[in-house]
Design a protein around this nucleic acid. Structure first.
Lengths: 269, 269
DNA sequence: CCACGGTGTTGCGCTCGACGAAACGCAGTC
DNA sequence: GACTGCGTTTCGTCGAGCGCAACACCGTGG
């Protein structure tokens, strides 16, 4: 009497985009984390229907997650949200990623030199994932992008990451090109040209493309094989990053990115 | 049925028994995340020993975690480490995790306990920027500092924020050290020594240094990386904050700052 | 007022899913 | 080649985790 939940006949291949096959209860528990990441806050009942399980099951899973501080319940109404345990794990994660570790001091220096915010991003699931951020000396921290998914075609980091891919991979990754501002590149053709330009000049710009008033400059970080594994950017308000100032920032960020690339073994022969 | 691998015997004590009671497999899976957070990298066998379960069990759990990108295996030898999925979750966590918001209830309690004014400050453009203020119970209301830029070398908050920087950054930030009262530290040498003291004891004092008759105590607020991201202070008139009373206030403010740090993911273990 | 619909929470048996044992493939290494 | 470590896979079994239903609670509103 096989139940309907997943293991059907002989099906070794799981294209399943959402649920990976594994230990059921763990799978569901992690599903809860993803639901909470998506919705921000949810009640037990809501989670239960989302996962397609009984209320009590959802509750037990949530309780287990709560014991590990990965979720916590809000005071008002017993709803749940992601907890501080996540942040603790995240701290341990970045601490162990060689890339972040190697790049950190250089990011600090770059942030100090430019006075603007510095970010490190990698490609993850058809979007840019920000791994680290060092706030510039100016203003208070603009917005913490770490862990956020950012569209690839509308950011300087995204363009740099895309520029490291070949045509086939591009086709797979690029879905519809959403419009964020009048300056967003929304058609394939111009984007391809832009990526060629990025490849050629070794850096990418994004001025008012994701958000009006936001300017960013990014340069590629390469590993020992020369592949683009990450991108480093300097971003700030457009009124501060004026065209003539961008010119000098470009030099600084490309230099910093090359420095990090060297630490990752690029250019050794 | 006696198991051969040795947990049963006379060993109810596991090296890291963080296990709250809950769904067993989920509990174990989350235990794996904690092990990886602690060790940075581990193999299946190693994890199995750590959790006190069979190798195959550990493998299945790890595989499930891997399907959700919470762990990933290193290339060289099939060891495992925390993955980018954690960062994605962390992004969703920090999105609604505002420093001021998290600190608010704790500030209130601190203000109530001490009866004095509590402030939260961050570093901004070579001065301290006050983000939030909770007035003490005393009738004597100080003026509202929120939004104000305050000199770094003459305040307890400023000293705490400076204590989180390295020498190079200090040189950039510190211009001329203005004199506000006869007690203001105006020379580099003594300030460096003072900052060393702050780092060592974990809090800062400022007595009559910005204004005669004003005493303040501050402690650092740290993020998941352990960086000093903000400072929390208790301040009031020197005639009320007498030396013996300062002693108890120091304990309270450091405790409160640690509490806020925990909420931001700072985990000391 | 008490019934109502909603929430999160809790015992309780039944059963299916997670467990441990053992075998497997593949590296290095003496 | 035998040995020893690793991560991985298979398989039969039994207890852990499941769905059910009842619970306590809280606003609503008839």
């Amino acid at each position: 009497m096989s139940k309907a939940f997943g293991v059907v006949g002989a099906m070794p291949d799981t294209p399943a985009p959402i649920t990976g096959q594994g230990v059921q209860s763990v799978d569901r528990a992690l599903g809860i984390l993803e639901v909470l990441a998506r919705t921000g806050e949810a009640g037990v009942t809501e989670i239960a229907v989302e996962l397609g399980v009984h209320k009590s099951t959802a509750f037990r899973l949530v309780a287990t997650l709560e014991a590990h501080r990965l979720v916590e319940q809000t005071v008002d109404r017993g709803r749940y949200r992601l907890g501080v345990g996540i942040l603790r794990l995240a701290g341990a994660t970045t601490a162990r990623l060689d890339l972040v570790q190697e790049a950190r001091p250089i990011c600090r220096k770059l942030a100090a030199d430019t006075g603007e915010t510095v970010n490190i991003a990698v490609l993850s699931e058809s979007s840019a994932l920000y791994l680290d951020q060092v706030a510039g000396s100016s203003a208070l921290q603009p917005h913490n992008w770490v862990g956020q998914h950012i569209p690839l075609h509308a950011t300087s980091n995204g363009k740099v990451l895309l520029s490291g891919l070949d045509e086939a991979q591009l086709d797979i990754l690029l879905g519809k090109l959403a419009t964020y501002t009048p300056h967003t590149i929304t058609r394939r053709g111009p984007l391809r040209e832009e990526l060629d330009r990025v490849r050629q000049q070794g850096y990418a710009l994004a001025i008012d493309e994701l958000e009006v008033g936001l300017t960013a400059v990014a340069a590629p970080i390469r590993n020992a094989h020369g592949d683009v594994v990450a991108s480093m950017s300097v971003s700030g308000p457009s009124f501060r990053l004026t065209p003539d100032r961008v010119e000098s920032v470009v030099a600084l960020v490309t230099e910093a990115a090359v420095e990090v690339s060297h630490r990752l073994g690029w250019g050794h022969r």
